[in-house]
Write a protein that binds this DNA or RNA. Sequence first.
DNA 1: AATTGACGCAACCGCGACTTA
DNA 2: GTAAGTCGCGGTTGCGTCAAT
Length: 262
Amino acid sequence: MGRQPCCDKVGLKRGPWTIEEDHKLMNFILNNGIHCWRTVPKLAGLLRCGKSCRLRWINYLRPDLKRGGFTESEEDQIIQLHSCLGNRWSKIASHFPGRTDNEIKNHWNTRIKKKLKLLGLDPVTHKPIDKAEKTDGKNKMTSDSSNSSNKQEASLESKSEDDHGMTVSPRKDEKLEEIQVTLDDTNDLLNNYQMLCGSFDLDSWLNQETNTSSSYTSSFSVEESNNPSMGETTSIQEESLKQWIDSVDSFLSWDSSFLLGI
DNA sequence: AATTGACGCAACCGCGACTTA
DNA sequence: GTAAGTCGCGGTTGCGTCAAT
């Protein structure tokens, strides 16, 4: 016999995560670390499968996540890496601490691909589209679509500038009610962080993390490779966690300022 | 003001590699 | 050695938002 199944799909919740679910997952992982994703939802009191929890943690809740749009230099680096590695998004993401493979993949598919086409480059081969057509007939479709979507590209460019501007979308207005309902939860979480900052055994938690979650350690791998001394690595990890707590604090204060209409 | 189509992002799905009983 | 579970990855989908008409 093998192991038990990862999750019993019957009765499990799917779709977008609620703030309450995020809080439960964050609290659980902060307090217990990650030993086995299969047990995480059960122990955290979530009606999700372990796979869904893992994805949510990696793509949204992870401590060292960097938020905001990609810079020009990051885009250039992604293009360079993609030309070497192809669609190995996790490998590409490992070069960008704080970025997830999903984020890079989405950015590639929605922005960079079109940018390259606009520049007359084939996003798959990274060669000029004319040459790529000669070598690969399938690329004809890509050049056609780039011509027909020039108008959209122009609007895309102007829109992408807005994305970097941290504008608050109208959708957040519609979420006011939900946020108000969960404000108590948010305050609870903030209290938990304050408690954790005082009593949390950072070293043991980080050790747990580095021992049990390969996806998490991979986010630190670049830093580790640059800093052979383990002592330095620990301080960097510590700093990353502190930055995350700061970012969560600022996120929570954003909620508050939003509610106050600031 | 209403409609419609494109876009962007979060989440899901399915598969392969690896692990474990 | 093998069957079955876990994990991670890449592809795809669904849905909310926005801009054009």
